[in-house]
Design a protein around this nucleic acid. Sequence first.
DNA 1: ATCGGTACCTGCACGC
DNA 2: TGCGTGCAGGTACCGA
Length: 264
Amino acid sequence: MPELPEVETVVRSIAPLIGRRIITAELRCPRVLRGSDPDEMAASLAGRKIAAVKRYGKFILMSLEGGGYLMVHLGMTGRLLLGGAPGKHTHAILTLDRGTLFYDDSRQFGCFQYSAVFPKRVARLGPEPLEISFDDFAAGLRRRKTRMKALLLNQSFLRGMGNIYVDEALFRSRIHPLALAARIRGDRARCLYEAIGAVLREAIAAGGSSISDYVDAEGRKGFFQISHRVYQRTGEPCVDCGTPIRRLLVAQRSSHFCPKCQKR
DNA sequence: ATCGGTACCTGCACGC
DNA sequence: TGCGTGCAGGTACCGA
């Protein structure tokens, strides 16, 4: 579900966790623990104070005082909620010195893991799209042989983009999802770089998208879906030229684009 | 070393 | 009302 702007919104909404101490951890779903032993993990978390909460692409890392990390990825349907009550898909409950943190995830594509050291999965990620320089971005494009859609979804190229914002950024820069990365140079590369920055900043400012079940830690929905120009608008008119938006499978993901504005 | 395809889960909207 | 199908913001893993 959540891409960079949604995860950023969640991270901001769980800022009250900073300085809280974990009293107990109840870990109900081995699958989202990804192989960690629930009892060992609960023991690692109990009594620990949350020193910081930071986002890396779509990952949330909570640093614990004295070392160690709680790493959370929301997958497609994950949610972090402060307070409320456990539900059918609540997989983790952290009882804090003040309040409770719930991790819910109906599809169980996300993860909720403890790591004593900085997690490898996070260390492997590419740069933040809002921090990379244009020169580094353009040089990266030239080195890749793959299609633009697949490249922007690849978290080792840039961390945090997902299906919505890739489609939106490609539309804004008039690049076809099947365009070869290495052939995007000069002004087109500049245009794409700025489109990525613009679409992510606008979405963060709007509090994320609200496709189906996205909510922040207080249960508030985002409102960015009103601004989607191509994502899930198959058959509707292009906002620029009126041509019906088309849907195409690229890298097994549905891709929405305007066949007139985004030529191959 | 990089790829494209497949698997993993549940829920929902849709057509019959 | 119920059933089958296709689709959904994600990544990991496999073989080529």
